[in-house]
Design a protein around this nucleic acid. Structure first.
Lengths: 230, 230
DNA sequence: AGTGGGCCATACATCTGACGTATCGAATGG
DNA sequence: CCATTCGATACGTCAGATGTATGGCCCACT
């Protein structure tokens, strides 16, 4: 058991026991180091590790704070991991993304608000001018896509599911994805799929929403070359 | 951008670019610190953080190595995160676990080997003497449960799914779970559900396996008090 | 020649102390 | 009352020294 492990477990215990609450500030480094019986260097290694996990947030000149501990933040490192594998297991990551997003669509169908439904519609409408692949359409379409899926995820009522979906759709994953879609010339088809998802949500039909989402992501996987050729 | 971020990104880049391969050894601290233009202290903070993420593995007196980068290892920190929330969002974690394990059962039904099927059967048989809740039955039943679910997950063919399932079923989560099952006196029912899953797998019936697994985990959630009372 | 044990170079682990730099808030002057 | 300044504070980084575990070489013994 290294000193740094003492630090990590010590801070974890302080949080789990309620001694440290989200948003609260930790004692200054020197003091906390003494409390835990380690040097400042070892303390910093532990704090840095927890910081990378999204548990702590340190601000120079100010102090170190416990984050909100939202799953979206805590699951962010998963995105790092996905990046690390590069093209490696993209196929498996996507299969999982399909499962999670389909479930999200199913759940959202019975919970989504009229306001968010309107927002989603506006997003899709905003995308239309870019569907023929103008110069910088790429970037914009990706932004819209992210926002559209985020709206759906946010209405699942399950913060863990939200966090996981966001983590699996890391920036680099989406970059590759939209490049493939562009090259495949299936931007219009993708847009139609988005509309179909929207209609299912608008109809508050869980099963339809789930199937439309699964179909959409299968189409994406096809463009990425993950599915066996006909 | 802190020095530590330079370290993390530097090492990440070395891995993604293929300059560092899984299992390979990193340069010694002093040398790597010079290469990245940081002090040894800052280097160690970055290395420690990557170590906690399951990317690196440092051994005193020997050196620092890149791990196998298996998803099971890289997703382990998710278990830490689940623990951190304690009872907090256990309900949502379990809902997700049900989704993932059901899918795992579906996939495993068409891929599981006769050997693993026999191993699973042996496990269930081994559990029977403990079902009446003898003194230390608790611990043993939990071990068997973990092993049973692990066998199924391992035959999904999707390493990301395997890693996530293992992460969501952290030690502390399972502790709480089995305590509830014991107190509820539903150990026999749980065992019957396991048998039903096994039969579906043995029949190589994906839909049956999925439903049996979902039903099993719903039962668990009920014992945990997550489902609305009748 | 094979084998077991002990020695030593090496690499990570930790501590101490110092200095750099960003931030917040109080004191100040308008 | 408000904007500015300035200093105490806290994190960021570096350097050097010492502790400790590991792995491999060498040698004595069989």
């Amino acid at each position: 058991m290294s000193r740094t492990d003492d630090v990590v477990n010590g801070i974890k215990h302080m949080i789990v026991s309620g001694q440290l609450r989200p948003g609260e500030r930790l004692p200054v480094e020197k003091e906390l180091a003494e409390t835990l019986g380690v040097s400042r260097g070892s303390l910093r290694e532990g704090v840095r590790a927890l910081s990378m996990l999204g548990v702590l947030d340190t601000r120079q000149g100010d102090g170190t704070y416990v984050t909100s501990l939202d799953f979206s933040r805590l699951l962010a490192p998963m995105g790092f991991i996905v990046d690390l594998h590069g093209e490696g297991h993209a196929e498996h990551v996507h299969a999982l993304r399909r499962l999670l997003e389909s479930e999200a669509a199913r759940l959202a169908a019975v919970r989504i608000t009229d306001g968010s439904l309107a927002d989603a519609k506006a997003l899709l409408h905003e995308a239309e001018p870019f569907l023929d692949g103008a110069g910088d359409a790429h970037e914009r379409l990706m932004e819209i896509d992210i926002a559209f899926h985020r709206i759906i995820a946010s209405h699942t009522g399950n913060p863990v599911l939200i966090g996981m979906i966001e983590a699996l759709a890391s920036r680099t994953v989406r970059e590759r994805l939209w490049r493939s879609l562009s090259e495949d010339g299936v931007l219009h088809r993708t847009h139609e799929e988005h509309l179909a998802i929207w209609r299912a949500l608008d109809a508050r039909d869980p099963e339809a929403a789930r199937v439309r989402m699964a179909n959409h992501l299968l189409g994406v996987e096809e463009s990425l070359g993950f599915l066996p050729a006909e």
